[in-house]
Design a protein around this nucleic acid. Sequence first.
DNA 1: CTACTTCTTGAGTGAACGCTCTAGAATGTG
DNA 2: CACATTCTAGAGCGTTCACTCAAGAAGTAG
Lengths: 209, 209
Amino acid sequence: MGQAGAARGRPRTFDRDTALAAATRLFWERGYEATSLNELTEAMGIRPGSLYAAFGDKKALFKEVVHAYTRSPVGAFVGVALREEPTAHHAFARILREAAAIYPDPAHPAGCLTISAATNVTVQDTEIAAFLRDLRNTNLAIFQDRLRAAQQDGELPPHADPRALAGYFAAVIQGMSQRARDGADAAELTQIADLALTAWPRHEPGHSG
Amino acid sequence: MGQAGAARGRPRTFDRDTALAAATRLFWERGYEATSLNELTEAMGIRPGSLYAAFGDKKALFKEVVHAYTRSPVGAFVGVALREEPTAHHAFARILREAAAIYPDPAHPAGCLTISAATNVTVQDTEIAAFLRDLRNTNLAIFQDRLRAAQQDGELPPHADPRALAGYFAAVIQGMSQRARDGADAAELTQIADLALTAWPRHEPGHSG
DNA sequence: CTACTTCTTGAGTGAACGCTCTAGAATGTG
DNA sequence: CACATTCTAGAGCGTTCACTCAAGAAGTAG
């Protein structure tokens, strides 16, 4: 986007990625609506005009923040675990335990950006609310697909309900994010993760096949 | 509070409880900050002056809303279950299953008022944020106390960790509230509740205690 | 140099925010 | 009746909101 080629006109005096990172931190801490443009421009070190020229409006900036987040190591761990782990159980165990380590990490605001920002958005801002709801529903569908595949492979017993399990793990993860924002540390969250994993459906004894 | 006695001066033309209920519904839907005085006065059918005369300011109104909520059937079911059920397992099973039925009930906004309103409050409004954090921490402590008592009674096995279990159930309940706000119905939430309950610690076989 | 393009600056936009204030209406008491 | 008291109506307070715009600064192209 303008990197190659002539680069005519006055060059930008701030680093776009650095400014985006500052905006990310702010949205992560406060949510979408509670973050004002005043705070954003101050944290990003630019004036409103520059922000609007570089990112569009507040909504566009937020969407770009979320987009970059879901591609960052901290935001993409769910997808990575689902891709790399051979079994669904391994994948969900890794997801929950990594969430327990990542959510309370003091290197960034507590909890998951998309979950926190989602809860801090109201019905009024229909566009952003829908954007985040779609994101969550997509995640839920991915969970469900993985669990359905596990059931077809025979990893999950026939009596297990992939849809219910997906909702359960989604709920636990959202709850862990909230607990992290309330100050729960990695040890406490790991215990929660381990407890949550004991709900994993086992093949009933006495049945073969 | 002025009910008995002379009742001098012009009497109030609106019903205080009805107005409070309207405010409750609004705060429940939108959270604290996202609910404006304009919306409140419109929903309550009164003018700003009447609101401030009857309830104080916005913060005081919100606190009164939460106070009334925690004493209402919908808001007090946790305490009731802990008080009425003979065992901790019965209590938590009832809490989760009642939450699954209550949170998506279309008779009121989805989810738990204190959880939803809590997530919709930002670091900026320190007073309200602290007020709600205290409420949640109190709930967590109550869970922990009940579970510790169950362990001393021998209901919970010695290897169980009351603190971790309390955090786990708190996280699940918060997650269920969020899922309800996302449109999960009672059936789905009940499945989540039942799955969550399978994590209940059992006495290890082969040990007699 | 001039011409052109793009970015930065900072004042300024209308709207909405929580909240207050005054005028008047509706009740009680003497 | 007069008078004190307490409410309601509605304009309006100062502030903050997301956002815009004109003017000038800083670069390339010829």
